[in-house]
Amino acid sequence: MKIKEIIVVEGRDDTAKVKSAVDADTIETNGSAIGEDVIKQIQLAQKTRGVIIFTDPDYPGEKIRKTIAEKVPGCKHAFLPKHLAKPKNKRGIGVEHASLESIRTCLKTVQEEMDVVEAEIGTHDLIEAGLIGGPLAKKRRERLGDILNIGYTNGKQLEKRLQMFQIKKSDYLSALETVLREEENE
């Protein structure tokens, strides 16, 4: 599988794993303190080929994603669910621990940032669904993010991410139904 866009990853282990899974070029941020030279590389990549941000599903990875998205508008996003990023019998979490098939799947289901339009899904909908403020909210948000390919978010980020990727209310409701059905079957 050949990827036209340049994939932004955190480090060289991520680059090695991504290049084992797909034919692609990468830019490494080398941590969450992204230098201005790296931002300039990403901006050039966005202008010439497009960019896919593919960071670890943890706090530093989300911080990197947010920093790049603010400084380089229009990037695409690939999200790796946490359960697919954990190594067997080791500590840590990251792209470098994912299977090659998981990486391919994530890169096939990238989300593209869109201009913000009026939200179809509001805070009230999220509270009513138990995605904000309930005892199962975190678990539900994590599963919803996996199903919609928008990654894990906290309560405040969820509404913004649904809006940013222009998730249709019908797709949201279908994903929520799946989450609630799975919960019942546990």
Results as ranks from 00 to 15, higher is better:
Lys139Arg: 15
Gly61Glu: 06
Ile121Tyr: 05
Leu173Arg: 06
His124Arg: 14
Glu112Phe: 11
Gly92Trp: 09
Asp125Phe: 00
Glu120Ala: 05
Asp115Gln: 13
Pro73Val: 02
Ala21His: 01
Asn154Glu: 07
Glu118Asp: 14
Leu180Phe: 12
Glu142Val: 11
Asn185Val: 15
Leu173Trp: 08
His97Tyr: 10
Ile39His: 00
Ile42Met: 02
Leu131Gln: 04
Lys88Ile: 15
Pro87Ile: 05
Glu184Ser: 13
Arg140Met: 08
Leu180Val: 07
Val117Thr: 11
Lys160Leu: 14
Lys138Asn: 13
Gln43His: 07
Glu184Cys: 11
Lys2His: 13
Phe165Pro: 02
Thr109Glu: 14
Ile52Thr: 00
Ile27Arg: 01
Glu70Met: 10
Ile121Pro: 02
Glu177Asp: 12
Glu120Gly: 03
Arg104Leu: 03
Ile132Cys: 00
Lys63Pro: 05
Ser99Ala: 05
Gln111Cys: 11
Gly155Asp: 04
Gly134Ser: 10
Ala129Leu: 04
Lys108His: 13
Gly122Arg: 08
Leu158Val: 05
Asn185Gln: 15
Lys168Pro: 02
Glu183Gln: 14
Thr109Ser: 15
Gly130Gln: 03
Leu162Trp: 02
Val110Cys: 01
Pro57His: 01
Ala45Ser: 01
Val38Phe: 00
Glu186Val: 08
Thr26Ser: 01
Lys19Met: 08
Met114Arg: 15
Ile121Leu: 06
Asn149Ile: 08
Ser32Gln: 09
Leu148Ser: 05
His77Val: 01
Thr123His: 14
Leu180Ile: 07
Ala85Asn: 05
Glu96Lys: 11
Lys88Pro: 11
Glu36Met: 07
Leu107Trp: 07
Glu184Gln: 13
Asp146Tyr: 06
Arg91Val: 14
Val8Asn: 07
Arg161Ser: 06
Asp171Thr: 06
Ile132Tyr: 02
Ser174Cys: 08
Arg91Cys: 14
Val117Tyr: 06
Glu128Asp: 13
Gln46Ile: 06
Leu136Pro: 10
Glu62Val: 13
Ile150Ser: 03
Thr48Gln: 04
Glu101Val: 08
Leu144Glu: 03
His124Pro: 09
Ile39Gln: 00
Leu44Gln: 11
Thr15Pro: 02
Ile150Val: 08
Gln166Ile: 05
Ala69Glu: 15
Gly122Gln: 11
Thr109Leu: 15
Val72Pro: 00
Thr123Gln: 14
Ala78Asn: 01
Asp23Gly: 02
Asp146Ile: 06
